Amino acid sequence: MILIPETEYELSAIRAQGAGGQNVNKVSSAIHLRFDIQASTLSDWLKERLMHLKDNRITAEGILVLKAQQYRTQEANKKDATVRLHEIVNAANQVKPTRYATRPSYGSKQRRLESKTQRGQIKQMRGKIASDKNEH
């Protein structure tokens, strides 16, 4: 798990958007977090991974901008923003194992075809029943 020092990102308080009445209108409780990926102390490999993320919160200059306004207090929004920053960086640090294509076994193919045949027979039984009388 990678921890980013507080000196590498900038927090600024802004007014939150949306409903909330007088509290929202007068208190700057929302937080803007700005993290410069290129100027950080992260490894070059991780910087490259972060820059290639298809995330609209990362600008072309390589600055990750997060807005936290979920909570009523500035402290809670600061904590939320830093937690989300660490989640993004740690997710980029994870390398998914390569997936190798496999083929279904002979037995699994047979079981699949048998279940399809049984299902078809069930559906066939739902049809109209032929009557013995000659209908004119």
Rank of each mutant, 00 (worst) to 15 (best):
P5L: 05
E87V: 01
I4F: 01
E114S: 02
V27I: 12
H86N: 11
A60Q: 11
I58A: 01
I4D: 06
G107Q: 05
L42Q: 06
L46C: 09
H52P: 06
A60I: 09
V27P: 06
I88T: 06
A81M: 05
L42C: 08
N23G: 15
N23I: 12
H52G: 00
E87K: 09
D36Q: 02
K96R: 13
Y100A: 08
D132Q: 14
E87L: 03
A92E: 00
T98C: 06
K79R: 14
N56I: 00
A39Q: 13
K79Q: 12
A81V: 04
A60Y: 07
A39H: 11
K54G: 09
K54E: 10
I63W: 02
A81L: 06
A16K: 05
K96C: 11
P97L: 10
S28F: 07
L113A: 11
Q17C: 13
N134A: 14
V65I: 11
K96F: 04
M125A: 11
Y106Q: 14
Q74T: 08
G21S: 15
S12F: 07
A19F: 11
Q70K: 13
K26W: 10
S108I: 10
I63N: 00
D44G: 00
R84I: 02
L11H: 07
L50T: 04
V89Y: 02
T82R: 05
Q69W: 04
W45G: 13
Y100R: 10
S115P: 05
A39Y: 00
N23V: 13
M1Q: 10
G21I: 15
M51R: 02
L64G: 04
L66P: 04
S131K: 14
D55V: 02
H52V: 00
R112V: 07
V65Y: 00
N77C: 01
H136W: 12
A19I: 12
Q110Y: 09
Q38S: 10
H86C: 09
S43A: 01
V65F: 01
V83T: 15
N90M: 04
A60E: 11
N93R: 12
